[in-house]
Design a protein around this nucleic acid. Sequence first.
RNA 1: CGGGGUGUGGCGCAGUCCGGUAGCGCGCCUGCUUUGGGAGCAGGAGGUCCCGGGUUCGAAUCCCGGCGCCCCGACCA
Length: 482
Amino acid sequence: MADTKALTTRAADFSAWYNELIARAELADYSPVRGCMVIRPNGYAIWEQMQRALDQMFKDTGHQNAYFPLFIPQSFLAREAEHVEGFAPETAVVTHGGGKELEEPLVVRPTSETIIYSMYAKWIQSYRDLPVLINQWANVVRWEMRTRLFLRTTEFLWQEGHTAHATEAEAEEEARRMLGVYRTFMEEWMAMPVVTGRKTDSERFAGAVRTYSCESLMQDNKALQAGTSHNLGQNFARAFEVTFQTASGDLDHVWNTSWGVSTRLVGALIMTHGDDAGLVTPPRLAQYQVVIVPIYRTDDERATVLEAAERVKRELAGAGVRVHLDARTGMKPGAKYYEWEGRGVPLRLEIGPRDVAAGAVVLVRRTGGKKETLPVEGIAARIPQEMERMQTALLETARARVEAATIRGATKEQFLQHIDGSGGFVYAGFCGRAECEAEIKEQTKATIRVLPDPEYRSPEPPATCMWCGLPSVAEAVWARAY
RNA sequence: CGGGGUGUGGCGCAGUCCGGUAGCGCGCCUGCUUUGGGAGCAGGAGGUCCCGGGUUCGAAUCCCGGCGCCCCGACCA
């Protein structure tokens, strides 16, 4: 960063680009604790926008927020066999408190199914108590081997929804509904296209009956699991004896779901839209949607320009636009341009003496194109339109990129060529056998991201497994993943 | 945990081979001039050279032992 002011390009080294972008935009920083990051104000602002949108969507679908403890008695994890097998190796365990060794060690939650369902057992007695629809915003800890800012850190922020239902069908409907909520959020807010579908058993959440996922493809053509929704069946209900009396008087176990997205989404946003100049934030998630840069020479000009800039700012703010006036002195306009571009601000307005005289402003879009002079008159209507257009264009651009990196109906040879070549999604037939899946992973590092939902499937269902040639039981989407 | 790399002002690095008391760029502070795409000049602040031993008149530099961090693998939202 010393001798060169430009970021490493994505083409030269995607990973370096990613890290440099985060540093440059001041989204996050490494902390004194290995694997743990500090989310800086600019990064946290994005997470807050995400939280706000998602929280509203959860509430609109009938959920309430609650909060459960950070610590979980170690024995709780062990109650669900698959669950403990999946999570025990990556837990942080507290053995001492107040200077004394604890009777029972406490696990720092890697996820909260166990402690939440232990409480549901107390709260649920009757079918009249169902469904229970709770979400929690929390931090969790998973002791990962290798970490990457936002994508995989030892501690991360997320939300986890946990619901209990009277019937299997209702739980399934809930799991699917929340997958849909995630998809909507990712497409409409993040402008990030996803493929939804079911995970194979080997990629399933530890303790779930079925796991659904939103998978997205980053600019380096590696897939990222962006959100998951699990149908837990009665596995946890049995482990924690969450029972209820049905209308007919029988005792039954509840049917659970859990679903979550994390601060990983910030990483997904970076790798979906970022360019060689830095972050690109879709308007709906931007901390500042518009930044105004005043330009002047003399003190007189400065006063005039700032007055005009303040007027524009007020007008935009009045129209609900998140706008920032960068009135810092001693910094040349060009320096400000680079800084705000690096931070991903969607739109920039430049106001100088010429513009003030003409009753105009200069509009510059983060995603390129020519500078455009606009009349100040009507700006409060014009800017929201620009943002809408950019929001839509970002999604379309990303869609086209993913489409270009996707092949369908692939043979084994085409699959290998694609995975080892430019990379991306490969849609092809799958025999359904775990051995086949494992062999592919071992030899190519590619995994089945999802068995796609109907709307993503190819018109012609594949007849045979792309790898072993046995009859195909489902179309699968393969990719190398983060 | 295996392989590779690296620890020197806030950041990025040089200096290490060949020991002589720490330097460069960026950033930061002050002042003046600047400001339509990363300003210039002048002055200034800031360092246990990762830690602990050893060798030496003398160690950032040589030797021994630790530790941290980064990258690549196995694991993962």
